[in-house]
Write a protein that binds this DNA or RNA. Structure first.
Lengths: 334, 334
DNA sequence: GTGAAAGCGCTAACAA
DNA sequence: TTGTTAGCGCTTTCAC
């Protein structure tokens, strides 16, 4: 079942069918109707793989660091909701949290002729990111970099971290530890959301005259578990922990519970992302909302615009985070 | 940068390059070496979209019902671990939990020339599933159907449900409610894992002479929340709840917590899937382990075999679930 | 507004 | 073992 069959069935040329399929200029209403009827009657579906050879594949690729992090589905929902009424399909790569896997995945997506990419918090070098974006329309989410070739959607992570520090400090906490996602590359130190968040914590603490206490693990449940264990092994225990992501806070809860500590009586805990798990009754985690759905919507919109016009100036959308206080934060024991 | 450039650079024919790329028969070691060097030097990458037009795209599509359900990443890990050392790439569709979205996504995957599909708990009709599997190598995960055209990997949901019921009954519970994922289609009633799980509960309860109490919502956090609210509104409250999935149990916990009930003192709770959240310290949910990673490994292996030989007899792999008792289940109040 | 014809990059017959 | 050649299904000039 090909375009040739449709053309024959409708009594027109293959060119005509192609034009109708693409809503291209140069097909009369009568022709469109004929072709559409033929498509209907034959149950024809264009073969995207073949379209890609000359035109577009109507496919958008999404890369994310960790499918287990419940924040990313929010972004995905925003993306798919926006793309639902278009001809585009979204295809997701499996989690990849290192430069090598990222390279493999983005290569694979380019090789499959995808029309555009949404990269969520990519760790690849700025050079590579830039090169990629000149190859294929790209929107970068979360990473605080700026390029002429790709659009970005970010949340103000500096402000978000300050929100948490201020909240805890206002409650009376003086010793507030932070668990961050380990970042050594100096170039990425200024760009990755986790690094900016840690920097925001740093600034906010110093602005209050408080001593900085950072533990480096990763933005995973295990990272939170291990980070909390390190913190609990300290001679002087902090009275509050600011986990860089809700998923980290989940692991922290396990470690605290195993240590026989209760939240917020023994120690306060705040997360980041305001995922659906933060709202869970028995957890009720204080967190920072960065409106994942909205991020996804913006990313999709920007990508569609960039696909339509690859020369348009790059846009930087920056969203403002919001603190959502819940039951895991309270004044420290007197 | 095409195969022609590589051929010219290596001083061989395009066929030779093609053969080397595919590890096909008919290329001398000397030729392979020459071609590989040319590929290296030119930084050539085959264009998968074009390969798909004649041969394969080296792409495997995965469809899952809900990206928010933390059980599915386990399966995905098993899949990607197994596929990592092959030439195949895994691409995931966005969540789709209804027949229409499933149809759109599988169509899109077929249209993109994917070499094989892994469908996790698909809800589409058996006819459609069968037709799909004759079009493209397919492995179905979780669904208890049998076909000559696709392989299946399932867990013994009947036994798993019985494990939970027996555990609770042995603790002394008599009134055990079950929250299931709503299923009306009579054909799917015997095939979907959620339906089989509910049926297993049914049988196990009756075998013990206990009264069945089923609430139908969905396998989501919200489904658990709403289901628990319905259960709590009963004149006579059950002493234990068996949630059909861990993600459901998460929602149940919220509802119980809002109602001022404690677990397991006021009410026992068990989930299913043994996700990483079940092991979380403050949650510590009794659950049923169905070895998601193993399921993924088997699915990948079966799919590779089916891609290699589409006529091979269909295999049905059935795994055995295991109960993981934790702190949310205890004897009822006297 | 419409259609004929030339590829897109690759694979697979087939011939050498 | 190697190379020549004809497409895969679609889009895109470029005539008409």
């Amino acid at each position: 079942m090909t375009i040739v069959d449709v053309a024959r069935h409708a009594g027109v040329s293959t060119t005509a069918v192609s034009k109708v399929l693409r809503n291209a200029y140069g097909a009369s209403p009568a022709m469109r109707a004929k072709v559409h009827r033929a498509i209907e009657e034959l149950g024809y579906r264009p073969y995207a793989a073949a379209r890609g050879l000359r035109g577009k594949t109507y496919t958008i690729g999404v890369m994310l660091p960790d499918i287990r992090n419940p924040f990313f589905p929010d972004i995905l929902d925003g993306l798919t909701d926006t793309l639902r009424d278009t001809d585009y399909h979204v295809l997701l790569g499996p989690s990849c949290d290192n430069e090598k896997d990222e390279g493999k995945l983005t290569d694979a997506m380019v090789d499959r002729g995808m029309d555009g990419l949404v990269l969520i918090a990519p760790v690849m070098s700025r050079t590579r990111l830039d090169r990629l974006a000149t190859t294929i329309p790209t929107v970068v989410v979360g990473r605080h970099s700026r390029s002429a070739h790709y659009d970005t959607v970010t949340d103000d992570d500096t402000a978000g971290a300050a929100l948490v520090v201020d909240h805890l400090a206002d409650l009376g906490h003086r010793r507030i530890a932070h668990i961050e996602h380990h970042e050594t590359d100096p170039a990425r130190l200024a760009e990755m959301p986790n690094a900016v968040r840690a920097d925001g914590y740093h600034r906010a603490m110093r602005a209050r005259g408080l001593a900085v206490d950072i533990v480096s693990t990763s933005y995973t449940q295990e990272g939170g578990y291990l980070g909390a264990q390190q913190i609990l092994a300290r001679p002087e225990r902090p009275t509050a922990i600011f986990a860089g992501a809700d998923i980290v806070a989940m692991g922290v809860l396990t470690a605290l519970s195993e240590a026989g500590l209760t939240v917020p009586e023994d120690i306060s805990l705040a997360g980041y992302d305001n995922t659906s798990f933060a709202a869970l009754g028995p957890i009720s985690l204080t967190s920072v909302d960065q409106a994942g759905h909205h991020i996804g919507t913006d990313a999709a919109r920007l990508l569609l615009q960039r696909i339509a016009d690859r020369t348009r100036p790059a846009a930087q959308v920056k969203l403002a985070p919001k603190l959502v206080p819940r039951r895991t934060t309270a004044p420290p024991r007197p």
